[in-house]
Design a protein around this nucleic acid. Sequence first.
DNA 1: TAGCTGTTGAAAACAATTCTCATTCTGATT
DNA 2: AATCAGAATGAGAATTGTTTTCAACAGCTA
Lengths: 145, 145
Amino acid sequence: MATDDLDDEIHALLRREDQRYTKGRRALVATLRAEGQPVTIPQILDASDGLAQSSVYRNLVVLEEAGVVTRIVTNDDFARFELAEQFTHHHHHLICSSCGDVVDFSLDDQAEAGLDEALHDVAEQAGFTVEAHRLDLVGTCADCD
Amino acid sequence: MATDDLDDEIHALLRREDQRYTKGRRALVATLRAEGQPVTIPQILDASDGLAQSSVYRNLVVLEEAGVVTRIVTNDDFARFELAEQFTHHHHHLICSSCGDVVDFSLDDQAEAGLDEALHDVAEQAGFTVEAHRLDLVGTCADCD
DNA sequence: TAGCTGTTGAAAACAATTCTCATTCTGATT
DNA sequence: AATCAGAATGAGAATTGTTTTCAACAGCTA
């Protein structure tokens, strides 16, 4: 997706929540986009300077509520953030239990479709309204082995 | 599994880590067993009295390291704990984003097998050593709808 | 330009979790 | 049984990622 289109869509999502797309929020999105992988707040502060820590936390909440950004919580100390799937593609996470690093991966279409169907059935039986499914592989990454 | 067998196995797991299976730890396991669903620490403290908060936190770490208990982290304020799968059965979680409640569910064998195979391939390609996979459905539970 | 409203930055507050330390328990040895 | 060493416990303090506060500021509208 071109940067301009992405910014337009994000602008629209924020406006829907009566939020502005400020310079700080643009910088945040740019950083997440540049990283291309889930990042912690310390990583964001290192990668993009000029942003105050409190504003980063606050804006990530705003962006998350608007559906621009996804928060990934693991057993690690820090939460991680990445652009929402609508701006990237549907994917899952490899979580390293040694270093805490989180890396994206995708299933092939057939496996994903099969999973979707099975989950749909489960949710229906439980009277559960599904917003998203999350699939993580927990283990040890190549670097930590 | 009978309570005695379960206690024996847990005892063995703890001994492997040079840990004792004390009264407090037995009470903790009994509570988790009685609940049968993931519970928060406040819930544990309510359900079983006589346990100090600091000991519950500490012992859950010990039990987790020994592989007796699994920690479930969500966007909710509190972590949740349940008996490890080896003492229950392989399952996944319905996570309510409204009330934070977590409920177990299982996939049918065929779907689970298909998923396993797909994940195995992904991990191999990434040089990732898998310890576990986690699959959560995030949404709204029947009570919150 | 003036005025209103939302945003920012720095620091204080908050809260789940972890740590400290004095006391108590466990269980192996005599 | 009595003793002793090491581990576990309870109460509270400390830690730390995150949230909130509040005064100063920026951006929009008239």
